[in-house]
Design a protein around this nucleic acid. Structure first.
Length: 216
DNA sequence: ATATCGATTATCT
DNA sequence: GATAATCGATATG
């Protein structure tokens, strides 16, 4: 299901939006737009899947062990980019939440491309032959980071609330309809917490697209 | 459709 | 030395 229409005007989210618990921030980010302003052609994509990582009482969060050089952005002002490198291969993008001094973040897991598809395909090193191939661009945290040319050196710590910046998050008026909530993907600690949020039925969502079945 | 595995490095024990 | 908020390739049902 292709849910989105590109819209001409996109207003950046303000810092107050992010100065909250990561759970409402995660829910609220669904349907918003990630913008890469300074690419050869501007890149925009709708946020369709995210995960919340809590500052306190969340063993799976990078902030669980306290403030370190790697994760210090999570303890800084809200609305800033926390970018980390994982498995020797991939960058992942988060946005810091909670007021400054308290940790918390939201991981971007999947996007639905709205503009700049050619540029994203080039950045990913793949070719798009049909609509069937589009999810390969931005379905998955490593993929979307590659599509937007997000690296730690370039983007860690930047302010995502300024439309004058290179990378920011905006609202184009889109209203999401259904939201699904499941456990987070790829973690071993606190694996059961229901902190993954995605737009129900959206084909760009990565991983399981339904609520887990109460098996047997 | 699910399962397994290698790649490759920052961070922590 | 082990692990990790992953991906892509390969194998098999």
């Amino acid at each position: 299901m292709t849910s989105s229409k590109p819209s001409a005007l996109i207003r950046p989210l303000d810092q107050a939006f992010f100065a909250r618990n990561p759970r409402p921030v995660a829910r609220g980010l669904l349907g918003k737009v990630l913008v890469r302003q300074d690419a050869p052609t501007p890149l925009t994509a709708r946020i369709v899947e995210v995960e919340a990582y809590l500052g306190a009482n969340d063993p799976a969060a990078h902030s669980a062990a306290g403030n370190t050089p790697r994760n210090s952005v999570l303890f800084g002002p809200p609305g800033h980019a926390y970018v980390y490198f994982i498995y020797g291969n991939h960058y992942c993008l988060n946005v810091s939440c909670e007021p400054e001094g308290r940790a918390g973040g939201v991981l971007f897991r999947a996007l639905e491309p709205l503009s700049g598809v050619e540029e994203m395909a080039r950045a990913r090193g793949i070719e798009i032959h049909s609509d069937k191939d589009l999810p390969k661009l931005t379905s998955g945290p490593g993929r979307l980071a590659a599509a937007f040319c997000i690296t730690r050196a370039r983007d860690n710590g930047i302010d995502l609330t300024s439309s004058a910046g290179s990378l920011w998050i905006g609202d184009d008026g889109y209203r999401s309809r259904g939201i699904s909530i499941t456990p987070r993907i790829g973690i071993t600690k606190a694996a059961e917490y229901p902190l993954r949020y995605f737009l129900t039925g959206n084909r760009f969502v990565s991983g399981p697209k339904t609520l887990p079945r109460v098996d047997k």
